[in-house]
Design a binder for these strands. Structure first.
Length: 885
DNA sequence: CACTCCCGCCAATTA
DNA sequence: TAATTGGCGGGAGTG
C-alpha cells in the first residue's frame, strides 16, 4: 500500500506540512512555520504536536523548497500552475500564520478544531489540479498524524471528498488524490441524478416544505431506493478504485454527501436549508421521523457542509422564513458543468484521469455501466449493435436476480440521469435551448429506438403478454423494459396500430418523456431549431444510457470506489443541452430549495427524465429493464410486450416533436396522428422506476387492469412501454378525450402526446395526463374526467395502479384540472415540475400528489426493489389519477 | 437556549 | 483476530 506513496509521498509530505500552516492563514502573519499554527492551537498538542512539529520542522527546513519545486513541477501547466502556485503561496502564507497561531495555541478553541478547518488543511496539502501523470496517494495515518487529529476525522473528510471523486480509496489506509479535475463532471452527474431524484421534491419543498417533509417520510421507502441510487452517485473512479475498497455498504456519509450536493444542484435557488436536507436525506422507511434521527442527520450534514465549505462549494447562510430563521447553505460552486469548470487546465487526461476522461468523453456510458455494455448500449443507441447487446443483457440480466441490485451501481443510475438532465432541460425549457436538449434527451433514449422505429408500429395492439412483464416487481421491470425495446423496433416494423385497440399504454419513462416532449414540442421546436440534431443526439445518448442503466443494473458495480462511469452522459449532456438547460432552470426559482423548474419543464421533461432517472436510480434494475426495453425494446420487448412499447413509442413519437431529430421522424409519423390521443400519462416518479402508462381515455380505467397479471389479460389496448432508460413507466391513459392536450400550449408535449396516442389508436377522447409532468395539467384541465377514470383502471391493474388511482384522487383536489403529479417520489424526481405554465398548478399538484403518494409507500415497502418499482409505478398512477380534474 | 459539531464509543467490515 | 472504517449520538462550545 505504501508503495504508492513512496515516490510521491516524500515530496508531498513536506507539502502537507505547509498546508497545515495554511489553515491558519487567516490568522495573519505569515511566518514560516506552518506547523505551529493550527495544530498547535488544536489539540494535537503536545504529543502529536510535537511530532508533527518535528516533521514540520524538518520539512520546513528541507522540504519547503522541495515542496515548492515539486509542486511547480507538477504544476507544469502554466495556467493551473499559476493558480495552484498561488494557492501554494497561500498555503505558505498560512503556515506563516504560525505566529498568530501562537496566540491561538494557547487556547485551542473549538473552532480551531473544526472539521472545516481540518479539511482546509487537508486540502492545502494537495493540488487542486494535480498533474495527470502524477498520482498522489494519501496515507490516512500519515495525514492524521500530520494534521494532528484522530483518524476518524480524516475519514469524515475523505468520505466526503470521495463522494465528489476528489479522492478515491486505493487500498487500506490509502487514498488516491484526484483533485478537482473531474469535479465538474461529478457535479454534473449529481445534478442529473438529483434532477431525477429530487426534482420533484424540490418542487414540493418550495411549495410546502412541511408537506414535503411528510412526503419524504412517506417516500422514505422510496428512499430506500435511493440507497440504491447511491451507486449513481458513486462514480467510482476507474483508476484508483480497488474493488475491495468499495465494499462497504452504503456509506451513508458518502451518499449523504452526494445527495446533499444534488439538492443544491437541483435547487433553483441553490440554497438548501438543513432541515429540509435532513428530511430529504432521511432514507429510512420509517415514516415517522425520529427526532433523534433527524438530529443525527443534521449532525452529519454539518460535517459534510464543513467539508463542502472548505472546498468552496457552499457557504453557510440563513434563510428567513415564516417560521423564522433557519440555517442553510448556499451553493457557491459551479453551476454549469459542461466545461467542467473545475478543471482548469486542459489537463490532459493523464493516466489516472484518462480512464475517467475516456469514460466521460466517449465511453462514459460504458464505464458507468460498469457494465460497460450498458453504456455501450447507450452509445449503441446510436449504434445498433450495442443496443442489441444491451437489450440482450437487459433481457437476460434484468430478469436475473440482479435487477434490483443496487449493487450495481449507481452508475447505472447515472445513466438514468440523462433523463434527469433532460428533465432539467425541460424545466428550463422554458427556455428553448435547454428545452431542446431536454427534449431530445427524453426522446433520445427511447427515441432513437422509437423514432427509428416507425411510430406507427408503435401502435400495435398492445400485447397483453407484455403486461406480464410489467407486472410489478422484478419481472416487470425486466420484462417491461425489455418489451419496450423490442417493441420499439417492432413498432417500426410494423405494428402500427397499437393504440387504437389498446386502452392504455404503458410507456417507459422514456416514452413518457417522449410524450412530454411532445407537449413541449413547441419548446422543443424552438430549441430544437437550435439544438435540433444535437438534441437528438443527446436524447439518444440519454436513452441509451438508460438502457445502459438497465443493462447495468444487473451488473453490479463496483463498490463504492468504483464508479465506473464517470457519467457517461455528462459529456454529451454537458455540451449542449445541459449547459443551456441548467442555467435556465436555476435561474427561475428563488425558493429556498430547489424549486421546480419552469412549469413546462416539470411536466414533461421531468416526467420523462425524471421518471427515467428516478427509476434508474431507485429501481435501477427495474427501471433499467424497463428502459432497456424501450430502447432495446425492440428485441426484448418484442417478445414481451412489444406492442405496448410500440405504443409507447408511438406516444413517444408523439413526443417526438420534442425530441429533436430522430424522434421527430417518429413524431412526424406520429404526427400524423391527428392529435393527441387521449390518454393519461403518468409520469414515473422520480427516481424510481416508474412505469408510465398510457391509458386510453376510453379504456381507461377499468379495462386496463394493469396488474401485471392483468395486463396480459387485458386485451386492452394498453401498451406498456418500458421506460427505456429509466425504469419508470409512465402510464398514460387515454381517455378518449380529445383535446386536453391541445389546450396545452405550453406543454407542447402533452399535446403531442395526445396526438400520438390518438393517432396511434387510442381513440380515447380526452387525453388525460397524469403524471408528474406538467403536461398533464393542460390536458388534465381539458380532460378532467379522465384522471379519475384512468385511475380506477390502474387500480385494477396492479396495486400500483390502484394507488395511482388513489393518488389521483388525492391529486385531484390539488390540481384543478391538472392531472398531474406524479407520484413518486420520494426523491424522485419528479417531475414535478411540470411545465412552467403549469407551475402554479404544478406546484400544488406536486404537493398534492405526493400526498396521494403516501399510499404508495406502503407498497414500496412491501418489496424492496420491486416495491420501488411498484411504488414508482404506483406513484405514477397516482399522479395520473389525481388530477383529472 | 439554539445552533454547531467535536469526540470517541463501538459496530461493521476487512485484512 | 486485529485493524480499518465509519455510524452514531452525547454533550460541549459558541453566540
Amino acid at each position: 500500500e505504501n508503495i504508492f506513496d513512496r515516490s510521491r509521498m516524500a515530496p508531498k509530505t513536506p507539502i502537507k506540512n505547509e498546508p497545515v500552516d495554511l489553515s491558519k492563514q487567516k490568522g495573519c502573519t505569515p511566518e514560516r512555520n506552518p506547523i505551529t499554527p493550527v495544530k498547535l492551537t488544536d489539540r494535537p498538542q503536545p504529543d502529536p504536536w510535537t511530532p508533527t512539529a518535528n516533521l514540520k520542522m524538518l520539512i520546513s527546513a528541507a522540504s519547503p523548497d522541495m515542496r515548492d519545486r515539486e509542486k511547480k513541477k507538477e504544476l507544469f501547466r502554466p495556467i493551473e500552475n499559476n493558480k495552484q502556485e498561488t494557492s501554494d503561496c497561500l498555503q505558505y502564507d498560512m503556515v506563516d500564520d504560525s505566529v498568530v497561531d501562537e496566540f491561538e495555541k494557547q487556547r485551542p478553541s473549538r473552532k480551531q478544531k473544526s472539521l472545516g478547518l481540518l479539511c482546509q488543511k487537508f486540502l492545502a496539502r494537495y493540488p487542486s489540479y494535480p498533474l495527470s501523470t502524477e498520482k498522489t496517494t494519501i496515507s490516512l495515518d500519515e495525514v492524521a498524524s500530520i494534521l494532528g487529529v484522530e483518524r476518524r476525522r480524516i475519514y469524515d473528510i475523505v468520505n466526503v471528498l470521495e463522494s465528489l471523486h476528489l479522492v478515491s480509496r486505493v487500498a487500506k489506509n490509502q487514498y488516491c488524490w484526484h483533485g478537482r479535475h473531474n469535479l465538474g463532471q461529478t457535479l454534473k452527474r449529481l445534478q442529473e441524478a438529483g434532477e431525477l431524484q429530487y426534482g420533484e421534491l424540490m418542487a414540493f419543498c418550495q411549495h410546502k416544505e412541511q408537506d414535503l417533509d411528510y412526503t419524504f417520510a412517506e417516500r422514505r421507502k422510496d428512499t430506500n431506493l435511493d440507497s440504491q441510487d447511491r451507486p449513481l452517485l458513486d462514480f467510482s473512479e476507474p483508476d484508483c478504485t480497488s474493488a475491495s475498497a468499495n465494499s462497504r455498504k452504503d456509506k451513508s456519509l458518502r451518499i449523504m454527501s452526494q445527495k446533499f450536493v444534488m439538492l443544491f444542484l437541483v435547487s433553483k435557488t441553490k440554497i438548501v436549508t438543513l432541515d429540509i436536507a435532513a428530511k430529504i436525506l432521511i432514507e429510512e422507511s420509517q415514516d415517522t421521523v425520529d427526532h433523534s434521527k433527524f438530529k443525527t442527520k443534521v449532525r452529519r450534514l454539518y460535517d459534510i457542509a464543513n467539508v463542502l465549505t472548505s472546498l468552496g462549494l457552499i457557504k453557510k447562510v440563513h434563510v428567513t422564513e415564516e417560521r423564522g430563521r433557519k440555517p442553510a447553505f448556499k451553493w457557491i460552486g459551479p453551476v454549469e458543468f459542461r466545461g467542467k469548470r473545475e478543471k482548469p487546465r486542459g489537463h490532459s487526461p493523464t493516466s489516472d484521469h484518462l480512464p475517467e476522461i475516456q469514460r466521460e468523453a466517449c465511453a462514459p456510458y460504458q464505464t458507468c455501466a460498469g457494465g460497460k455494455q450498458k453504456f455501450t448500449c447507450h452509445a449503441s443507441l446510436n449504434d445498433a449493435q450495442p443496443c442489441e447487446r444491451t437489450k440482450k443483457k437487459l433481457l437476460s440480466e434484468p430478469n436475473s436476480p440482479h435487477q434490483g441490485k443496487r449493487g450495481n451501481y449507481h452508475s447505472d443510475m447515472f445513466f438514468c440521469i440523462p433523463l434527469a438532465c433532460a428533465t432539467e432541460t425541460i424545466l428550463n425549457s422554458g427556455k428553448n435551448q435547454s428545452i431542446n436538449s431536454p427534449l431530445s434527451l427524453l426522446p433520445v433514449p427511447g427515441d432513437s429506438d422509437f423514432c427509428v422505429k416507425p411510430l406507427p408500429h408503435t401502435l400495435f395492439p398492445v400485447v397483453q403478454s407484455d403486461l406480464p412483464g410489467l407486472s410489478l416487481p422484478n419481472g416487470i421491470s425486466s420484462q417491461a423494459l425489455r418489451p419496450p425495446v423490442p417493441e420499439a423496433s417492432k413498432t417500426e416494423n410494423g405494428k402500427p396500430t397499437l393504440l387504437p385497440n389498446q386502452p392504455f399504454l404503458c410507456f417507459p419513462s422514456s416514452s413518457l418523456f417522449m410524450l412530454c416532449g411532445g407537449l413541449q414540442e413547441s419548446v422543443l421546436k424552438e430549441s430544437h431549431a437550435v439544438a435540433g440534431n444535437a438534441g437528438n443526439r443527446s436524447a439518444r445518448e440519454w436513452a441509451s444510457p438508460h438502457k445502459a442503466q438497465a443493462a447495468e443494473v444487473p451488473v453490479h458495480s463496483q463498490k463504492r470506489s468504483s464508479h465506473p462511469c464517470p457519467s457517461p452522459c455528462a459529456p454529451v449532456d454537458n455540451e449542449e443541452p445541459l449547459a443551456k438547460k441548467q442555467p435556465l432552470e436555476q435561474s427561475n426559482v428563488p425558493l429556498s430549495l430547489v424549486v421546480p423548474k419552469e412549469p413546462f419543464e416539470s411536466p414533461e421533461a421531468e416526467s420523462t427524465p425524471g421518471s427515467g432517472s428516478t427509476s434508474a436510480v431507485h429501481l435501477e434494475a427495474f427501471h433499467l429493464d424497463l428502459t432497456t426495453p424501450a430502447l432495446e425494446a425492440e428485441d426484448k420487448e418484442t417478445t414481451k410486450s412489444l406492442d405496448p412499447q410500440e405504443q409507447e413509442k408511438a406516444s413517444q413519437s408523439k413526443d417526438p416533436s420534442e425530441p429533436s431529430p430522430g424522434k421527430e421522424h417518429i413524431c412526424k409519423e406520429n404526427a400524423n396522428q391527428p392529435f393527441p390521443p387521449q390518454y393519461l400519462y403518468v409520469q414515473p416518479t422520480a427516481g424510481l422506476s416508474s412505469l408510465n402508462f398510457l391509458f386510453s381515455a376510453n379504456q381507461a380505467p377499468g379495462a386496463v387492469g394493469l396488474a401485471a397479471s392483468h395486463l396480459p389479460s387485458l386485451s386492452v389496448p394498453c401498451v406498456v412501454v418500458p421506460s427505456a432508460a429509466l425504469a419508470s413507466f409512465p402510464l398514460v391513459c387515454s381517455p378518449a378525450i380529445p383535446s386536453p392536450l391541445s389546450p396545452v400550449p405550453d406543454s407542447s408535449f402533452p399535446a403531442a402526446t395526445s396526438l400520438n396516442l390518438g393517432v396511434s389508436g387510442l381513440a380515447s377522447t380526452a387525453p388525460v395526463f397524469i403524471g408528474p409532468t406538467a403536461v398533464v395539467p393542460p390536458k388534465a384541465s381539458q380532460s378532467p374526467p379522465d384522471p379519475q377514470q384512468p385511475a380506477q383502471p390502474p387500480v385494477h391493474l396492479s396495486p400500483v395502479l390502484a394507488r395511482a388511482g388513489s393518488a389521483v384522487k388525492l391529486d385531484s383536489p390539488v390540481y384543478m384540472g391538472h392531472p398531474v403529479t406524479f407520484l413518486k417520489l420520494q426523491q424522485p424526481l419528479t417531475a414535478p415540475l411540470t411545465p412552467k405554465s403549469i407551475r402554479p398548478a404544478h406546484h400544488e399538484a406536486f404537493f398534492k400528489t405526493p400526498g396521494s403518494l403516501g399510499d404508495p409507500i406502503a407498497w414500496k415497502k412491501s418489496e424492496g426493489i420491486q416495491t420501488r418499482n411498484a411504488s414508482s409505478v404506483q406513484r405514477r398512477l397516482e399522479i395520473s389519477t389525481a388530477s383529472t380534474d
